[in-house]
Design a protein around this nucleic acid. Structure first.
Lengths: 174, 174
DNA sequence: CTAGAATTGTTTGTATCCAAACGATATGCT
DNA sequence: AGCATATCGTTTGGATACAAACAATTCTAG
């Protein structure tokens, strides 16, 4: 990104967060929750951008297109609605992403033989070959990004995130 | 979202991740890093969607528009380039977001008096009033989303995320 | 059977989002 | 002073992203 993101070596992050604290005062603000959520968004944005620049740029794949193809690579042929759920996007968005991938022959659509409302989507041979080459590089970057946390902290981090995820889902089940 | 997201009570998350493990094998895959990063993206997507539905929908504000207005509320008038950095978007994107906010009179643009290349952006009174009403509700939701983690785990979570953030930035400083 | 209800993927409309090109302004070197 | 360089916000073009409306297909109740 040309303008970059907010600076955040430890000192600056703390400064920014302390700034917020100073400006909002102490009253009725859950700073711990604020720090958790804002850092989740910051890391997600930065990491997505990082992956798009380092691993995905050479192939001209967007992060979402990569995720979609990755899901197909792991799960095999899927109905569009299930693919959308796994990729974390709406069915409307999926239509566009699949069209993009299909135009590059990384993916192929076909009707479900028993229910013509459904569309089945699968990675082509080219798509699978691309993922076989891309995923190791992608995972190596994931490794780099988390290398300053030891194994225990990585597991704790993933686990805490799963707890938050479960909480969100239970709130929306209402 | 109409199609929802991937199911993820603890059992299902683990099942999905175990599926991945089964399909990828053990060789040369950093599953801990994969679990960390994929859960960061999952939580960020779900949480953004949750905030847009619960807190922001009533005011018709996008998550990015909210973030931008929030930054102005905390920091006061800012140059466009700095606002973009704090909001985590490019300057080109900021132009559109600020135009949207300005059309609703939540924000106002003016030229920098000493350097006419620069644009200064500030929240209007309406914008500040909106944030004063919206932020407490937003923070209450942040609180809800993290309530299943105790104070120590929340601090650890935020801290681990800061470590990852710092790592990404150090990688890009190259 | 058959009309109404439900489900699925696509389309439409609007808002992001980024990279790259651009015009306007300011700075620096001579 | 004057011209190349740099910086800044905006514009452009293409892809994503969601909600809502839609057409096609299937299911369901009577």
């Amino acid at each position: 990104m040309a303008t970059g993101f907010s600076s955040s070596d430890n000192k600056l992050v703390s400064m920014a967060e302390r700034d917020v604290q100073h400006r909002l005062g102490e009253t009725d603000v859950d700073f711990e929750a604020l720090a958790v959520m804002s850092n989740i968004f910051r890391v997600a944005n930065r990491a997505r951008y990082h992956f798009e620049r380092t691993v995905l740029a050479t192939e001209g794949l967007s992060f979402t297109a990569f995720t979609t193809l990755w899901v197909l690579w792991i799960w095999g042929e899927l109905e569009a609605r299930h693919l959308a759920v796994h990729a974390g996007i709406t069915k409307g968005t999926l239509t566009g992403v699949v069209s993009t991938l299909a135009s590059r022959e990384l993916v192929i659509r076909r009707h479900h033989p028993d229910d013509r409302r459904l569309v089945l989507i699968a990675a082509t041979e080219q798509g699978e070959a691309l993922m076989a080459e891309l995923f190791p590089r992608f995972n190596a970057e994931e490794s780099s990004l988390t290398k300053r946390l030891n194994s225990e902290r990585r597991r704790e981090l993933a686990d805490s995130l799963r707890v938050v995820l479960r909480t969100i889902e239970s709130l929306e089940a209402t």
